[in-house]
Write a protein that binds this DNA or RNA. Structure first.
Lengths: 195, 195
DNA sequence: TGCGAAACGGAGGATAGCTCCGTATTTAAC
DNA sequence: GTTAAATACGGAGCTATCCTCCGTTTCGCA
């Protein structure tokens, strides 16, 4: 895991941490989530040792880099959801999660891991997702057997599928919509077999 | 791509190719699809150069290793589907595809690539999937806007999600069922009618 | 200003991927 | 059976990346 953001870091340490996060975002955006960490360090004009002191693994760096984005996602979702019906709120949340997972090519494969890091953004996002899901389930709009982890996995998976080279750009909305239909409580389609 | 299976290989070459495929299956099963290719060569008691001569990339080796399995999948599906309604045939096909993708840990992430290699098994599987999908669509059971690639992607994605450490073992059937519900033609949104 | 703690940098060991080419084996012609 | 060309083999070694370790530098407090 990475250093606590609010910790009592020395001024140079805090500056370097900031530079690393900026560089990581740039490099991951350009070259994907499996880019060389040496490149990240170079871009930040910092030694590789410094990178590893601040972020003990690629996952930790990824998690920290995504953290702010996730915080924003959670916050916006909370605000928006007040004015939306439960199902719709969940739908938008799912769409944004898919989008987030596609932020860096290859991120999706590690997003599950990322979301298990207990940084602020991750916790906020999972809490918000949980809330939306439960609300929609209590309203009878979504199947009761679904777990938040399922939703996260599928968001990640759809994003991953979309990242394939030469993929149809319509694929993401198509798959997202399809998955979403599957989430919904079915009006007891008789003869439809159970899963 | 790998050597043509039926080609006029020298006897020693054919023997080594066989050994490599056996070793690859063993190593990938034990250590996942990103296992060291050096290990595969060692297990086959063959030089690493020989491995690369026969299979120019990890994907080619994976594709060849999966090929037979895919051939079987396609053949069984074709036989089975004669006795099943279109939707059910497609459902079983999807389930088996998910299962195949989970054959080696981490394979799912490359299965899309694997299925684009034009080996016999891959071609057979995509042809069969296409046939099942079109049949179900013509019967009005499945949304018309779905492409086979979507189905393949989701199968791969579900398998990937399931491979996560500590995942709920019920997740695969749950997600598969959900996705499948999403595939189906909807009988006029919610509550309207049922079938 | 001086000193201890904190942080820095990057050399270099470890590991994996992949290429290259000298050597060995096979095959077919004679 | 001999021989020569074609084919295939093996693995050393080059490259690239990851990550650790430790001598050096910077910071900040007194």
């Amino acid at each position: 895991m990475e250093d606590a953001t609010g910790g009592a870091l020395r001024a140079d340490a805090r500056r370097n941490r900031e530079r690393l996060l900026v560089a990581a975002h740039a490099v991951f955006s350009e070259r994907g989530a499996d880019a060389s960490l040496n490149d990240v360090a170079k871009r930040a004009e910092v030694g590789i040792g410094t990178l590893y002191r601040h972020f003990e693994s690629r996952e930790a760096l990824l998690a920290a880099t995504c953290d702010e984005q996730l915080l924003t996602l959670a916050k916006q979702s909370r605000e928006r959801s007040e004015a939306l019906p439960p199902l719709e709120a969940l739908r938008v949340f799912l769409a944004e999660l898919v989008h987030s997972a596609g932020m860096y090519k290859g991120l999706a494969a590690s997003l599950g891991i990322v979301l298990k890091n207990h940084t602020k953004g991750c916790d906020a996002t999972t809490a918000e997702g949980q809330r939306l899901l439960e609300t929609a389930q209590r309203a009878g709009e979504v199947r009761g057997d679904i777990l938040l982890d399922d939703v996260v996995c599928m968001a990640m998976a759809i994003s991953l599928a979309a990242a394939e080279d030469g993929a149809d750009p319509k694929r993401v909305p198509r798959l997202t919509g399809m998955f979403f239909d599957g989430l919904r409580s079915r009006p007891e389609p008789r003869g439809a077999r159970h899963r």
